[in-house]
Write a protein that binds this DNA or RNA. Structure first.
Lengths: 341, 341
DNA sequence: TTTCTTTGTTAAACCGATTTAGCAAAAATC
DNA sequence: GATTTTTGCTAAATCGGTTTAACAAAGAAA
């Protein structure tokens, strides 16, 4: 039982496939096709359950109605939820989403982008890994519409949707200070990535603003790809400082945060008594954890909606003067038990 | 800067595009194209950064090298991790994955399958929602290769990869019994869905095997789509039973589990002192939760690998006698603090 | 009656690849 | 020298749609 094509309908009715195509694309009246024939075409199409082949359509029109989404890892709940929002918003505009996990490796992202660029997608939403500047430039040169999310490269003018990482981080750190913490550590990752650097800067700014010393010994920067043992090592170093033990940790990603909290439990350090905790990204895990974890929640729905809308605009706007959008959204600070006395 | 096509290369070298296509597809020797010309073609292709248009290729060959994945919700960590495994395995065989979240609604799945079936994917991996039997039958009739995961329909012969839900659930319940629990409740969802029904049966079997009464009052079945308030209501009912208060709960999905644990915390019920907890699916959340949560872990990597491999076989095997595979995998029971004294 | 419009429809090009069938020239065989 | 085989390459069909240009028939205007 092979699928019905335009030609099948045309032949059965003894008309041209042009006519069938016009009618089924709603251009029947515009092209003055008689009502009678229009009705016949539509009826037969329904009867044969005709669905246009999207590949053929895509080849001719150059449109696929598909968005390529390049993120670090769809298994990471942060990206999973973000991906869902993007999928939802895209679907509401008739677009599908091709998900690709880059594992934060520029090489992977390069291959994925190149692959999808061969006529498979109309545009991209990308969370660009460290070192993928060249790839993004190439994308820009090739006039492929795209939107960067979560981070961007200041030296490359492009659409992007991010959050105010510096402010968010600063707010989280201030909260710890206000709650009497004096030796606040920061465990972060992905150095050189703008969003992470901003989060570290926000931490430092809060300390400086409160006239507290920024002690480089309290800052642990993990490699791009880190395992729980890396986090454990960092925490052990932080807690084995002879004088002035740490009394709080700011985790700049939920991945580090989850691992860090596991480590604190393993080391039998009480949260928040021994160490207060604040983490970026709000997970279900943080809500059910005992104590519940204070989190810096990113507005995932907004990020998803904005990025899709901007991309759609870039994809459909024929006028050459494509305006670039740089959207900076606010995070929401959710105070729970891990950070208060 | 538009993309280079086969024709561009052919014209610049003054040869036919047939020749270029043959050379670039490694059939140069087979078709006795001279070494000299082969070299020139390959060089120019590299120089012009030629990448074949996958849409055109797909139209001609009828192959897209894309798999359609229909799951409940990519934001659900269980499906996120599973999706990642499928993406990984597919990529290792040169396939891409189109993710679709059905929200467990048959209508959504129907639209998504119909949409992708129009030449966009070569096959499907599907976690079929309740009520999507007709759609799966249609898929089967249309000879589209597919593999069902997580659940399947016994009345429809098809490839599938699932876990031994009955055994897993039985094991979890037995563990609670062994640890002295006598009034064990079960909160489940999606009635009529085979995997869920099996989990409930496993729970009942363990009770019966231990000569404990199966009290229907202790079984709460939530509607397909449930919110935390539904879970709260169920738990309130369970804990307000006058005589013989419950002393344990088995959650049959992590979504229900996470919500349930939140509720127990809100109600100030101590885990495991007041209520012991065992949940299906192993989340990061369960590892960092205090107490850590005993979980029935599904072998996500195995499920991903098997489903992709079976699908690949179904997609490439030209011999009509497609053997159907029904794979039943074992779960892993991870004992943590939520279920022991 | 002749010419111009309008109406209703279609042939053919096109998108960019793959694949089949075949052709001219050179080499081998008789 | 004539015939067959091999070598090296290409024209054209094809996938299933969309889109452009055009054409015959009928009606309106001159």
């Amino acid at each position: 039982m092979k699928k019905t094509s335009l030609n099948d309908i045309a032949q059965q009715l003894g008309v041209s496939k042009t006519l069938v195509s016009l009618v089924l694309n709603g251009k029947g009246n515009e092209y003055r096709i008689s009502e009678d024939i229009q009705k016949k075409v539509k009826e037969l199409a329904r009867k044969l359950n005709y669905k246009p082949n999207q590949i053929a359509k895509g080849l001719r029109t150059g449109k696929t109605n598909t968005i390529g989404l390049i993120i670090a890892d769809i298994a990471n709940p942060f990206f999973g939820k973000l991906g869902r929002e993007i999928e939802r918003e895209a679907a509401s505009h008739g677009y599908r989403v091709m998900f690709c996990s880059s594992d934060e490796k520029a090489e992977n992202a390069k291959l994925q982008i190149e692959m999808l660029q061969q006529g498979q997608v109309d545009g991209f939403i990308i969370s660009p890994p460290n070192g993928s500047e060249e790839q993004i430039k190439q994308l820009k040169n090739s006039k492929t519409p795209f939107v960067l999310i979560d981070r961007y490269f200041p030296e490359i003018e492009s659409n992007c949707v991010v959050v105010d990482n510096l402010k968010a981080s600063c707010e989280g750190t201030e909260h710890l200070i206000k709650n009497g913490r004096k030796r606040i550590a920061c465990i972060t990752t992905n150095p050189g990535m703008l969003n992470m650097d901003n989060r570290l800067d926000g931490y430092k700014k809060a300390l400086t603003d409160a006239a507290l010393e920024v002690d480089e010994n309290l800052i642990k920067i993990l490699p791009f790809s880190h395992e729980i043992k890396d986090v454990m090592e960092a925490i052990k170093e932080l807690t084995s400082l002879d004088e002035n033990k740490i009394d709080a940790i700011l985790f700049t990603t939920s991945k580090v945060g989850v691992m860090g909290i596991q480590c604190l439990h393993l080391l039998d350090l009480k949260i928040p008594e021994d160490v207060a905790v604040v983490s970026f990204d709000d997970l279900d895990a943080y809500k059910i954890s005992r104590p519940s974890i204070t989190a810096i929640a990113q507005p995932l729905e907004e990020i998803g909606k904005h990025s899709v809308k901007i991309l759609l605009e870039a994809m459909t706007d024929k006028s050459k003067k494509k305006e670039l959008h740089k959207i900076v959204l606010e995070t929401k600070f959710v105070i729970r038990n891990s950070s208060i006395k």
